[in-house]
Simulated assay, not measured.
Amino acid sequence: MKNLDQLAVYCGSAPGTDPAFAAAACATAAAMVREQVQLVYGGGRLGLMGLIANRVLELGGFVYGVIPQALVDIEVAHSGVTELHIVETMHERKAKMTELADAFLALPGGIGTLDEFFEAWSWNALGYHKKPFCLLNVNGYWDGLIGFIDHAAASGFMSPQRRAQLLVAETPEQALELLDEAVTAATQGMVW
Rank of each mutant, 00 (worst) to 15 (best):
L39Y: 00
G60L: 07
T184Y: 10
M49Y: 13
E116D: 15
L166C: 06
G189E: 09
G43N: 04
P160H: 06
T28G: 03
L100A: 02
Q174D: 14
L7E: 00
G12H: 07
L51H: 02
F21K: 03
T184F: 06
S122D: 13
M49S: 09
D180R: 05
W192A: 14
G44M: 01
A95I: 09
E119R: 05
F117V: 09
F62I: 11
Q38P: 04
V72H: 00
H91E: 07
W123A: 10
A164R: 10
V56C: 06
T89W: 01
A106R: 05
M49H: 06
P15N: 10
V56Y: 00
Q69Y: 01
M49L: 10
L105A: 08
M190I: 13
A31Q: 07
Q36N: 11
V33E: 05
V168F: 04
A22D: 12
G140P: 04
A164D: 09
Q36C: 03
M97A: 05
Y128Q: 14
N54D: 15
E92H: 15
T184G: 12
H85V: 02
Q161S: 12
E35H: 15
N139S: 13
H151P: 07
L84K: 04
R163H: 12
A120S: 12
A70E: 02
A22I: 09
R34M: 06
K2W: 09
T171G: 03
H85M: 04
Q38R: 07
K94V: 11
Q165G: 09
F133C: 06
A120C: 15
V40Y: 00
P160F: 11
L51T: 12
M1F: 13
Q38K: 15
S13W: 05
T98W: 00
I149M: 14
H78G: 02
V37Y: 01
L4M: 07
A101P: 04
L145W: 09
A27N: 07
L135M: 15
T187D: 13
P172A: 04
E173Q: 12
M190Y: 14
Q165V: 12
A186W: 06
E177C: 11
L57D: 00
L4N: 02
L167C: 08
R34P: 02
E35K: 14
A175G: 09
S122H: 09
L126P: 11
Q174I: 09
L105S: 05
A25R: 02
R93H: 05
M190D: 09
R162H: 15
G127C: 10
M90A: 01
R163V: 11
Q38S: 15
L179R: 08
A95L: 15
A29V: 05
S159W: 13
V168K: 03
V72C: 00
L59N: 05
N124A: 15
L176K: 03
W121M: 14
A77V: 00
A31P: 06
G110I: 13
L179E: 06
F21T: 05
F104T: 01
H85L: 01
N139T: 11
S79H: 14
Y10I: 03
G147T: 15
R162F: 15
S13L: 06
K131V: 09
C134Y: 04
A95P: 02
A27M: 01
G140L: 04
L71R: 00
A20K: 14
Y10Q: 01
D143E: 10
A175K: 03
W121A: 11
L7I: 02
E181G: 07
D102K: 00
A185R: 12
R45V: 06
S155C: 09
H151S: 09
E35C: 13
